[in-house]
Nucleic acid binder design. Sequence first.
DNA 1: TTCTGCCACTGAATCGATTCAGTATCGTAG
DNA 2: CTACGATACTGAATCGATTCAGTGGCAGAA
Lengths: 368, 368
Amino acid sequence: MDVKSPRGERRVTLKDVAEAVGVATSTVSNAYNRPDQLSETLRRRILATAERMGYAGPDPQARSLRKGTSTTIGLVYPSRLSYAFTDPMAALFVQGAAEEVERHGYGLLLVGGPADDLDPDAPQGAPVQRALVDGFILHAFADDDPLYRTALARRLPTVLVDEPAASDLPCVAIDDAAAAAGAVAHLLALGHRRFGVLSLELTLDAVGGLIDTARRGLARYRATRERLAGYTRAVETAGLSWERDVAVFESLDNTVAEGARGTALLWGLEPRPTAILAMSDQLAFGALGYAAEAGIRVPEQLSVVGYDDVPSAARSSPALTSVHQPAVRKGRESGRLLLAAMRGEVERGCVWLPTHLVARASTGPAPL
Amino acid sequence: MDVKSPRGERRVTLKDVAEAVGVATSTVSNAYNRPDQLSETLRRRILATAERMGYAGPDPQARSLRKGTSTTIGLVYPSRLSYAFTDPMAALFVQGAAEEVERHGYGLLLVGGPADDLDPDAPQGAPVQRALVDGFILHAFADDDPLYRTALARRLPTVLVDEPAASDLPCVAIDDAAAAAGAVAHLLALGHRRFGVLSLELTLDAVGGLIDTARRGLARYRATRERLAGYTRAVETAGLSWERDVAVFESLDNTVAEGARGTALLWGLEPRPTAILAMSDQLAFGALGYAAEAGIRVPEQLSVVGYDDVPSAARSSPALTSVHQPAVRKGRESGRLLLAAMRGEVERGCVWLPTHLVARASTGPAPL
DNA sequence: TTCTGCCACTGAATCGATTCAGTATCGTAG
DNA sequence: CTACGATACTGAATCGATTCAGTGGCAGAA
């Protein structure tokens, strides 16, 4: 009947221990949680009995219900978790968030979107509805992602990352438009006049491939939207045309393979771009990979600018020029803001983190 | 009084909704969990009322207590989480574990060791004792880590990763000794006769720096121990001396900086090693970094072999020769085994995953 | 008409702890 | 000798749901 205990032994509870020792359940509870409330001798006796009986300690679930807290914070990704972690950026962000929350005794629960190929007898409902957490960090949602509303419906303290469009919730972000414009400025200064953009997904159901000007305005992810806006502004300020001089490839996911595929398409255009603006280092690595494979010399024939500046960008060959953003700190700030919100300290407005361009060997003067 | 609701409105419960609609609580519960148990009209009315009252849905904590499950699995690291995630390997492992468990509707809770610089009024006790999970994946513990016992004391289904020494629990691992020996064999074939090892921590309280032969035998982490054994075997089989021909640097943590520091020390030895055996790619990147900085030509003057073969190893300059291990698959297998164990399917013995050496540009013939 | 079976819903027990007001005991001070 | 304050422990209420054995009503069959 009971699958969990094949031997049929019912699980030992605090009550069992209390009966065995001959004290009230409250006393056993105190033995674990408030040692000052009972004599040291009794406490030792209780703990020894518990040990002997195989009592696993106060059940976290019961405690959690009674105390009204789970000392866990939820980190929510719009996609499947396994997609979120294909980019080392994700690890850096987690590192920062973990650093902040674990210092305050909190655990970090990774929560993904609903899976499509779900095991038929898996529990129903979105993971975000079932998550045992005291607060949420919502990471880079599309404006119209239904999961976003579902998460907010939990009415828990919440922090938004890269998604300050919506509302009066605390948030953490970078000035993506300015950062993107900076990347263009760098290339303009090197004489580039024709660009290829390797874009992240624009919408929940990304189409992928080279996209027309109309679709460029449809981005539902704030970061993507802002970066495109930044590119546009910088390009047009320089007297160039966003439509004529910039080709945009929308990738289906943030992977090296997609970056390579996009670069192949962009390189096949006529006239061909002299520089690639990638929205992540993963995509940029794909560009470098395709170039190496196709015998295109970087930066002599093609310049490449990444985005994020993950640690390995400095080690690639050629070393990748990239827009640096403080990933670990982003995680830390998210955690900090959430913990503050949970203490009831309302922090209004966004925390804007600085970025800067790191010029390395993957960019150079435009070819004639 | 109630910090969570600054406006003083008590939180809305299922009972409140039931009263408002005029039905039993069980009916409201059914409206959420068993739609077939009530008429569609009543269900709609209940859901609408709940929405209007600002009911956040059945409380996960209460549900969790009642149902006796949390649909969450815990991924436990011996150190602080923020240390675990300094290596991209960690992200790949998480990716695999997440892929497997989220497909079955489970969440993934990251659990770290107890923090030292803890916030004074953080909840007491190790996070592992408070974790709201249905099972544990224990990642690369030292044999004598007390946290290990604490985790087992929870008496939950458990899977061990890189730690099959202990017991009859299901586990996932690679043949570290053979893999390490393979790295040595590659270098021997290239004519190398004098080696420097960049080792991971040997014990919970690592000392760091160059270590003597006695300490080499003290490794408490299975992976580290096995790799050292593999190096030893390969070196001695070739007629060389483990003590005379191999210097070992123990790093304090798995970072590029430590790899560089270790390489500097090894390079300063007399006679100097012609090849570096690193126990992680992070350490190996440190070796490459130091070499570049010190003007040491790789592989002409010094060969470097990494371990793990993370994706960026293929992109470094020079491209890193490394022992490949299937990190994502390791995560997947861990998840799979744990879910099986939770279903009561006992799988005996370890799952051994294959490794292979990937030779790239960072290794070459030994200098004369 | 009576019986059977189904549908839609109810009530109470239960999950395993924590909390807090309250009681008994005892040493000490007045 | 009484009163008082500590100290050590008890008992019952409570957290917010889920579950399951009922109950009543109604349609269709006998």
